[in-house]
Every structure is written in structure tokens, then in C-alpha cells.
Write a protein that binds this DNA or RNA. Structure first.
Lengths: 171, 171
DNA sequence: GCAATCTAATTCGGTAACGAACTATTCGTC
DNA sequence: GACGAATAGTTCGTTACCGAATTAGATTGC
């Protein structure tokens, strides 16, 4: 087994199949995009499976983590921004988390429109507990690359995302 | 402007913020994963915006494309596999597409459990029409890399996905 | 040749997400 | 200081999705 490992994943098949359907298809672009999509889906699936053990749904865990990322206290609109969803969707998530005793809503005294959302002790415990089981998969998958390769990957993706964040046209 | 371009994206801020919260956090792993997630979200958003012009929703377009990828004819269960969703969800999508006249369901004569789903002329036209407007964004974003860099990116991601597809444990 | 098992697609019930409209409060300005 | 605009959060109605159960037909075993 020399240095030339012949590697193959399901995306290679996908690209080959579509190359026969769409003639002008860049295999590296289609391959990279498809792999990223599938990577994200894979991570999501593994996370879901891991979370059942902690009696949490992904949307619950994500919400707790968004709160944890703000040191356990945030406004609903801040969570909406962090989670990339409309604020009314956050309302529903908070209702459920509040029912489970994981968060607490306290109205602001200075601005009576505002609400402060806080992690309860149980909420923080649930988050930290589940965090132990979740997130290993990213390390397992990227752990197959060397440190330099991971750096290269992250750098290339940064170059891509800088373009994405430029947003050429917004009507 | 020499060779050392200082590049920065929103994920750098994200990683910096979380590095202060979780001490054992590999910046390259967290950076790469976060960028992939955001890349996929970005592509999804741009696609949605582009599709309104063609009066299609993403799930409709994706379903038409799955059918197109099978040369316009497939079983519901095949579509379910290609789309990565349970078959009953496909039923709902096909109901809607059939109402719009984009697909046609014809029962198999040899096996009366089976149903053949086919793209109608209008369905194929809608798919091909929308495909023109969708998918540019991937090329715009990855077009900022050189050909070699795109190859490197795709190869690194393949190495990652080979690990994902090994699935160490499945109960 | 008939019962048991498997398979394909669907129906059903429930849930989370979204856009739009709504309520309550604060800000800005004349 | 009052009235219009802006802001924060929520409510409402609709939709897509999912797991579980269901229907109908094919296949296997004896």
C-alpha cells in the first residue's frame, strides 16, 4: 500500500451520475458542495441520535446552546439572530423550554417591551450534560486529517465564506 | 498588497467567542464545521430567493430535480432514498406536484403495489427553467478559488466523508 | 393451495416552523 | 407633550414534515 490511496465516497457516484445528465458540471464544485451538504446532514443525524439519550430534541439543544453562548441570558430577538430564525419561532421554542423548566422569562423593568430569557440550573445542566455526548462526531470525522490539512480546509472555506458574506445584490 | 491577505469572516468571530466559553475547542475543526453549516444555509437561502421567480418552493424544486436525476421516472421509494426523507413525506410532495400538473402517477401493471412517478412536460419545463437561475451561487462562491484549490477542497472533503460513511456503530 | 411474511405506498395524528397580523411600549420630532 | 414611526415580543393560521399504523399486493414456505 503505497502513498497513492484510491479513495472513494458516495458523492463520487453522485457526481458521475449527474455528469451524464448535465454536460456542463464542474466535478470539483459539485463534489465539494455535495459533500458539504451531506456532511451537515450527517452531523445532524448523529446529533439527533445522540440527543435521545439526554431526552432532548435538536431544536431544544440548539436553543439551550444559543443561550449558553450568551452566558445563560439573552433576549428572544438575540436568540433569533443567533439561531438564524424568525423571532416568532423562538417564542414557540421558549414556551416549550419554559414548560420543561429549562429557561425562565423575566420581563425587563427598564423597558417593558423587553423580556430577559435565562437558563435555569436544570437548563444549564441539561445543556452541559448533552454537550458531552454531542460534538464528538465532528472530531472523529475531521480527526482523519492532519493538523495542517484541517488548517488548509478551514482556510479554503473561509475564502469561500468571505465571498458569501459579501452578498453582491440585495434588493 | 503583498501575498499575505488578511482574510476574515463571521465564523472567525464565532470561533473566538466560543473559545472563551469552551476551553477545549479546536479552532480549525470548529471553524471548518461552522463554515460548512453556514455555507449550506447560505446556498439554501439564495436558492429559495431565486426560486420565487419561478413560482417554485425549494421542496418542489428538489423533488423535480430528484425525478430529473432519474431521467424523469422513478418510484416514490426511490425518490425518498434520493431525497433522504421517509417515503410518507414524499407522498405529500407528490400530491402537491400532481395537483400542479408537474408529475403524473401511473400504477404499475406488473406489480400493483408499485407506482411509477413521471415528470410531465410542464414539470420538466419548470425544472429546467428554474435550474437556469438556481445553482449559480455555488459557482460564484467557489469560483474565488483556483482550480487546484477547488480540487484540494473536494479531496479533503472526500477524506472526511469516507469516514462519515464508515459509520462505526449502527445498532 | 393457503397461511405467514415481506414490501410499497398511503393515511393519520401530532409538532415545529414560517409569514402576517397584532399588542404593547418606547422613541423622535415638531 | 402629543402623535406618528419604530421596536419587542407574541398570537394566529397554514404548511411541511415525521413516526406509527394501515391497506393492498407479492412472495415464501410447507
Amino acid at each position: 500500500m503505497g502513498g497513492t490511496e484510491e479513495l472513494h465516497d458516495r458523492t463520487d457516484d453522485h457526481v458521475a451520475r449527474w455528469a451524464g445528465i448535465l454536460s456542463d458540471l464542474d466535478p470539483d464544485i459539485e463534489g465539494a458542495v455535495t459533500r458539504m451538504v451531506r456532511f451537515v446532514e450527517h452531523i445532524r443525524r448523529v446529533k439527533d441520535r445522540s440527543l435521545v439519550e439526554y431526552d432532548l430534541h435538536r431544536h431544544e439543544y440548539d436553543t439551550l446552546q444559543a443561550l449558553g453562548g450568551r452566558h445563560g441570558s439573552a433576549a428572544p430577538s438575540e436568540l433569533a439572530a443567533d439561531l438564524g430564525m424568525p423571532p416568532n419561532s423562538v417564542t414557540g421554542r421558549l414556551d416549550a423550554l419554559e414548560r420543561r423548566g429549562f429557561v425562565r422569562r423575566t420581563p425587563s423593568r427598564t423597558d417593558r417591551r423587553r423580556v430577559r430569557v435565562e437558563l435555569t440550573h436544570e437548563g444549564r445542566a441539561a445543556w452541559l450534560g448533552a454537550m458531552g455526548g454531542v460534538g464528538h462526531e465532528e472530531y472523529r470525522l475531521l480527526g482523519g486529517l492532519t493538523e495542517d490539512e484541517r488548517r488548509t480546509l478551514s482556510d479554503l472555506l473561509r475564502r469561500v465564506m468571505v465571498r458569501a458574506e459579501q452578498e453582491p445584490r440585495n434588493p
